[in-house]
Design a protein around this nucleic acid. Structure first.
Lengths: 340, 340
DNA sequence: GTCACAGCTGGAAACGTTACCAGAAACGTT
DNA sequence: AACGTTTCTGGTAACGTTTCCAGCTGTGAC
């Protein structure tokens, strides 16, 4: 039997109470008799009645929605963070709505639109470009948290920032390789023009070389797009161009896995012939063969801090803040020491 | 500057037209003059006005929402399917809303509730238990597609089914190992009591042994929960109990990766010492070292068929159907032939 | 007997939109 | 000149809630 769409009015009629009372029962308001509660509950139960959230939201003029906007295709790294965020948000009694938007959508504009249209309480933006927000964030009139790469302590009016310092983190990776005696180092990363994160990490790499008094030559850098296959091809190209590389830094663990496959196919043993270091610290890296050495981002903390900041902002009207989290280096089996 | 919340009335006033006309412009209705279009568009642009979707949905009595409900924690296999579904749904002009619900939530009840509350057009259920739906699916009054493991050609009134035959697929895996000369075979899978999929695949395994005139002994089976770490531990336990195993079937690729790591740590070479076959056919398997041999589910087709079926159902009121897709065996490097 | 007050209830006005209806104006067609 | 017809427009009743306000009863205090 398919229950037809009932309204609160039908419940009122069937239970013998008024619309107001039914509404009060359904919202657990205090001033309502036990009799009414029971009668209404019975009818609701019988008909599996559910309030129309459109009408309710329209009337209340605000939802309990918190938007999570993720830029770019899903990847295993973001997915983990989103999952944690969703969980935390629902624990706080809110509703998480996730939106995946295209890499080339105007994130800021779209975000503002979605927010206003859905009357959400706030939004968390994952993987957005801080540069875009700098100019356009006033289009968003809800509290927002931007969870992405950060450099300096920017502060905005109602935009909080949570992230790591990607430049420093990447520098840590190259430092590690250099300290292990590697001098012929290849780098696989994103497009430094279009991807702000890649640009930051690229800067970090260069800083490391400079700090060690070494040159960094563009031919060491190979572009890929953060996918397995793209990194796989990039690694093959790079090795063809620079066969004497002894180490590879990949700007994501997923890319590191793609690259490692390529190296294996080329007959290169890891780390005996070529060392590999990744970035992100996904769980999978520890299960790869060999275990991946990587720069580990604090995934859970990124999620926690973002959600906490946003909810504080919503509930306490607290000021926007900027939180920069630390990364760590997880040693696996994919980097070896070179003796000179 | 934070634009205050405007309504269509404000736009009407500022543009000098009536509410009706503004509404018509915003909805691209035909009967409206160029002058009106321009005037309204200008005011809308100026104030970055966005229609209140609550009000609109309330009035229209239906949304363009299609719910995707995913049971259990996100995993790399489902994620890929969800991504594809979302994309297809938005291509068709609908709105995909993804909900992740807990393993132990009453999926059917929750689904019905969400659907009615949000007035969604339909829902796709990923990873649900068909047994639950058998008894409770009449709680759902929207067209629905259940994308999960299937056995026989069940037909429901407004519930379509898309899936593979997990028993046959698992049988294929064991057949493959047996045909490669393996006789000491371990299996890592989920709880056959609580996980319907695991139960199906378990049945398939047993069928294979029986068909080959072999016994299948419970000690060959080790329970895990479809996560890396759980499979890792399971593999270690299983190998401790049955050190002479020459092959391992894992009921998901992710578990296979967890298990392979365990084997590597135990000093077992894959496939020289132990062969491993997985299930799912995730992209990552091809990049693992060694490449994973696996039963490949048609991920993209699962997504496509599910979405097509649902949209057909919504738009054409077509009858519910059941589609069983074929799996394939992807040969990697993780299974070797044993000569007797 | 009046008053204050609590506990409970129903009526009705919003919330912001859409869609129906009616009507005005302009234009052809007879 | 009378008429359909097309093109455009504005008024307004819904949609299903919540919430304010007012009212009713009963109770206890003076």
């Amino acid at each position: 039997m398919i229950p037809k769409n009932m309204t609160i009015k039908d419940i009122a009629r069937e239970s013998g109470y008024s619309v107001s009372t039914v509404s009060r029962v359904l919202n657990n308001h205090p001033d309502v008799s036990e009799g009414a509660k029971e009668a209404v509950a019975r009818v609701v139960e019988q008909n599996r009645f559910v309030l129309n959230s459109m009408a309710r939201l329209l009337k209340q003029q605000q939802s309990t929605n918190i938007l999570i906007i993720v830029k770019g295709t899903m990847n295993i790294f973001f997915t983990k963070i989103v999952e944690k965020m969703q969980h935390l948000i629902s624990v706080h009694g809110y509703n998480a709505v996730v939106h995946y938007i295209d890499e080339d959508d105007d994130e800021v504009r779209l975000a503002g639109q979605l927010c206003r249209e859905r009357k959400s309480l706030g939004l968390i933006f994952l993987g957005g470009n801080i540069e875009h927000f700098k100019q356009g964030f006033d289009q968003i009139d809800q509290p927002a948290v931007l969870t992405t790469t950060l450099t300096d302590e920017l502060t905005f009016d109602h935009l909080s920032l949570v992230g790591i310092n990607d430049a420093d983190a990447a520098q840590m990776a190259i430092d590690y390789l250099l300290d292990h005696g590697h001098r012929q180092i290849g780098i696989i990363g994103g497009h430094t023009k279009s991807s702000y994160i890649s640009k930051q990490r690229f800067t970090g790499c260069r800083n490391s070389f400079t700090a060690h008094g070494l040159d960094f030559d563009a031919s060491q850098y190979q572009k890929a797009n953060f996918h397995l296959d793209s990194a796989y091809r990039a690694a093959k190209e790079l090795m063809a161009r620079k066969p004497d590389l002894t180490a590879l830094f990949c700007m994501s663990d997923v890319m590191a896995i793609g690259a490692m496959r390529a190296l294996t196919e080329l007959g290169k043993k890891i780390p005996q012939d070529v060392s590999v270091i990744g970035f992100d610290g996904i769980e999978l890296g520890r299960y790869y063969n060999p275990q991946l050495t990587t720069i580990a981002q604090p995934q859970m903390e990124l999620a926690e801090e973002s959600v906490n900041l946003l909810i504080d902002h919503i509930e306490q009207q607290s000021k926007a803040r900027t939180i920069i989290l630390n990364v760590g280096l997880t040693e696996g089996e994919s980097v070896r020491m070179i003796e000179h």
